[in-house]
Nucleic acid binder design. Structure first.
Lengths: 207, 207
DNA sequence: CAACATACAAACAGGGCTGTATGTTAATTC
DNA sequence: GAATTAACATACAGCCCTGTTTGTATGTTG
């Protein structure tokens, strides 16, 4: 039964797709590996060949998501007089549009949002937190640059501005994903980002 | 071995305390009822007498949290020319201070944030979502009032303002709880709320 | 002070599910 | 083209844990 390398990659992909489907429908904790195997048209043997265990499978599910080109964005922000707010707002909008278009991303992020984060799954949360930390540092650096350019309202610090931006995006995504996607996240998000970035640049709050 | 009613209530409380401790340390999914029983100094029999199952135990843990007096707040907002922003900002601040002071609340909310939300635990999420919905409606109503008073900047809608407020508070709490409580949530929260409410009242974004 | 209900402890039943070890076949490799 | 090994299927070992049932002693009630 030995398959060719290409075929093996394909069954691996089938397993990932099946895991996405099954975990999304039944939840990571309540779906057995057998469930996933059946959905993928293989046996548990195949799964354990390609993945170490359930946590690893979920992690690879997460890793299967193509991430936005962060270096490209970083380079855009490097220019001395870059339009920081403009770039950040566009990047945020693009992220939301990416999520809105990609059902795999929606399902996988839903799975991650709903699943347990303790014990063997801690590695997954840690990975997410690491990425989060990186994003946060990059964001903060960007707002520092905006501050030096005199564009950041004096009510804000780079850190507070970065935090709020992330809270808004996270809140938007969580609400949308966990609540049955009952609104247009792309357009609502666009509005929210517009409002938020408008407040960043207001020179002094009129209070 | 029949205990008096008061004693029974006390063992119930002991079980809740033990569950809080054990679930917080090992995670809801990875702690057995036996673990909780041992920590409480009883047998599983006692737990199953007081609670239907694990999900019910977690739910009661959640219900054991005293919630802020919502009616009192609502009444405060009813006054024709109530200072909506002032009240909301204070309420938000008070909520964060309550969380900062109450370790039980911290642990229980951490447990809820980290635990699985599917299957038998869906009832818990639903309960949280129901409360969330109520809060959202109340918040939106409050911002509607502010809008009628002409106090809401014209970049905002009541809904968008309410959403952002909730995202900020949720983001703040999640980050603090899931990340080892590494900052002063009361003071950081106070600042964040101040900045946020300042932006609500800016008449027109200077863009 | 019966009679009944309560508050548990202790014993019971049983059940998928995980990880591994082994088997098998067909690609590769040399 | 023989040997090796990749890519699985199948079989195995093992287990902790959940929910329920039974037992029982003690409050509680009339």
């Amino acid at each position: 039964m030995r398959r060719t390398k290409a075929e093996a990659k394909e069954t691996r992909q089938q397993i990932l797709l099946a895991a996405e489907k099954v975990f999304y429908e039944k939840g990571v904790a309540h779906a057995s590996m057998e469930d996933v195997a059946r959905a993928a048209g293989v046996t548990r043997g195949a799964i354990y060949w390609h993945f170490a265990n359930r946590a690893d499978l979920v992690l690879e599910l997460y890793n299967s998501l193509p991430m936005p080109q962060e270096e490209l964005i970083a380079r855009e922000l490097e220019a001395e007089n870059a339009d920081v707010f403009g770039v950040l707002e566009r990047v945020g909008r693009e992220w939301l549009e990416l999520l809105a278009e990609d059902e795999h991303r929606q399902r996988i992020l839903s799975i991650l949002l709903r699943c347990d984060n303790t014990g063997e799954f801690a590695v997954i949360s840690e990975r997410q937190n690491d990425l989060d930390d990186e994003h946060m540092q990059a964001l903060e650096a960007a707002f520092v640059k905006a501050e030096r350019q005199g564009k950041l309202g004096d009510a804000w610090t780079p850190r507070s501005a970065a935090s709020m931006l992330r809270w808004v995006i996270k809140g938007l995504c969580s609400e949308w994903l966990l609540f049955g996607r009952r609104f247009d996240i792309a357009s609502e998000g666009k509005d929210a980002l517009r409002r938020l970035f408008a407040t960043y640049s207001t020179p002094t709050p009129s209070t």
